[in-house]
Design a protein around this nucleic acid. Structure first.
Lengths: 205, 205
DNA sequence: ACGATTTTGGAGCGAACGCTACAAAATATC
DNA sequence: GATATTTTGTAGCGTTCGCTCCAAAATCGT
């Protein structure tokens, strides 16, 4: 019973994601949100509760459609090393193509919102942990398949890859330069390759 | 000629740094600033021009007192590897001791302000480049001194270290956990060590 | 001492902020 | 069709925003 909603809820959330993504939490006003969501201010509060609650919803939408989608697309192909390499390649390519330098909503939130809001902080930390776990699963699979060095510490290296990923997204927002971003990633990805037996230059022992 | 300033200009700038550092650019109000700087609103505009100009000044102060000081303190000891290692150790320790999770003003600005303000973006990029250059100088010195592998690519690895540093500062704001932060840094720092000749497990060719 | 110049505190500008109140409009149940 | 319930648009609540105006206060050169 009651009047039914006239706006497209999926489009509305996507509009909210775009707003928070482009401008950040503080700099996004409720009026901006309502306009980009295609709804009125009253509907926004009626349907989503308010700015903060809407942000949590938008964050979940972003994580689902952007992060988890990207993970799911790479995983389960039986090529764990390519999964990780392609993950970084895609992030770099998208960062370079990101003309308005929006970066990653999760990373932006980790610095903007999370430190000032314990609840949202835990949510963001949980999303980032999902990325690290993706790295760890694929490192372990790569070791089992003999594609990666046996002595790789999956916990260490997965955390390292997560840190490098965060670094790429930070640097991309101030200096979206291909050479820089690829240099950041390369030493980390080289860890995943099998060591080459160093060729002896001259006879020595 | 004219009335002379009554407030301590150094303390005032430090107060502005503290404000922007703790709350971010957008979330810091001119009234917050004036109060923490110990001056009135009119004096703030008279002496510094406005919120944005004051932010640029505060950023320069932070870079000088926090970043360049940290670099200068480590460099020129003839121990380039320790300079880099200690740099990361200090960042991790300070991040763990940073109870209100202020992080690094440069990194915060790189995500908050830089993408929306081209001029400030270039300033921030310049400061970050100083950090990368510090890494590169010490990598080259370490190679010359025979403390680091001869085949280290100083450009690549210095960019990598900068990325890892950014990653540590991001993760520290959402999950200030020693094990996590040290895991992020460890594989990067291990690059600086001389390779150990792998001990042959069994006789094999 | 005096005019010129600068700083300081206070009041307040117009605008935008997050949010709410309220009545008209639209639906389901009966 | 009457009633109950929900959504929608509008108007506006009180607050805060960055910033400016202005007169009093304080210092200089002369």
């Amino acid at each position: 019973m009651g009047r039914l909603r006239e706006f497209d809820e999926a489009k509305a959330i996507d509009g909210a994601v775009d707003c928070f993504w482009a401008r950040g939490y503080e700099a996004t006003s409720v009026r901006d949100l309502a306009e980009h969501m295609g709804i009125g201010g009253a509907s926004l509060y009626n349907a989503y509760g308010g700015k903060r609650a809407l942000f949590v919803t938008a964050l979940a939408r972003y994580a689902e459609r952007s992060m988890r989608e990207r993970i799911a697309r790479r995983e389960g192909n039986g090529q764990p090393k390519e999964a990780i390499r392609d993950f970084f390649t895609e992030i770099i390519e998208r960062s370079l193509a990101d003309r308005d330098r929006k970066g990653c909503l999760l990373v932006n939130s980790a610095l903007d919102v999370a430190p000032h809001d314990a609840e949202i902080g835990k949510v963001v930390a949980g999303y980032l942990e999902e990325i690290r776990a993706f790295f760890q699963r694929n490192i372990e699979a790569g070791r089992r398949a003999g594609q990666m060095p046996r002595n790789l510490d999956a916990a260490d290296v997965s955390a390292h890859l997560l840190g490098v990923l965060m670094g790429i997204r930070v640097l991309a927002r101030t200096r979206p330069d291909r050479a820089l971003l690829e240099s950041v990633a390369r030493p980390a990805l080289d860890l995943l390759d099998m060591p080459v037996r160093p060729r002896a230059r001259r006879a020595r022992s």
